[in-house]
């Protein structure tokens, strides 16, 4: 039952969640975000690079309220940020290199939200794997 009580809650801007895995281990999931309170995710971004400078496959996984909502794979160009968002059906995770854009601004909300990602293809030499998640949490003021 929803409660709209007199105790005031509001969104707090949390520090940017950062993963800088250098080098990443192939087929190992890294947590970009894992919250246990009401959370609003604004942006999820991933990037990988190595000396090969070839495309490499990354897999991302979004879990909302304990349920894996969507899993998606995306070939990542070298040293390029990719942005993850929920498609209009709100269940399909999409990935784009388009410059950030509100059409890709999903405002994903849940009582707990987890995003993790793994590099599917083996990384080359001097590999780096980055995740950035901007989010807010609903807390008592």
């Amino acid at each position: 039952m929803p409660v709209y009580g007199r105790n005031k809650f509001y969104w707090y801007k949390d520090s940017l969640s950062e993963v800088d895995e250098d080098p990443p281990i192939v087929s190992t999931y890294y947590d970009g975000l894992d919250t246990t309170r009401l959370t609003k995710v604004l942006f999820i971004a991933t990037r990988r690079l190595d000396d090969d400078a070839n495309q490499k496959n990354l897999q991302g996984r979004l879990t909302i309220d304990g349920v894996i909502t969507s899993v998606a794979n995306k070939e990542h160009n070298d040293n390029t940020w990719y942005y993850w968002y929920l498609d209009q059906d709100a269940e399909t995770l999409r990935v784009t290199t388009s410059i950030y854009h509100p059409n890709y601004y999903s405002a994903i909300e849940g009582r707990s939200i987890k995003f993790d990602a793994q590099q599917v293809d083996a990384p080359g030499a001097n590999a780096e794997f980055d995740i950035r998640v901007q989010y807010e949490t609903w807390r008592p003021t």
């Binding site: 509001y10 707090y12 801007k13 940017l16 604004l42 942006f43 940020w81 509100p102 950035r132 901007q134």
Partner: peptide, 29 residues
């Protein structure tokens, strides 16, 4: 001034265009 999705969200990026595509809800305490 708009959000940069790869940074902390507080270092606002800028854009030349006057454009509602750069609206993002930015909540804080």
């Amino acid at each position: 001034w708009t959000r940069d999705p790869t940074r902390d969200g507080r270092s606002l990026a800028h854009d030349t265009a006057y454009n509602f595509f750069y609206y993002y809800a930015f909540d804080f305490h």
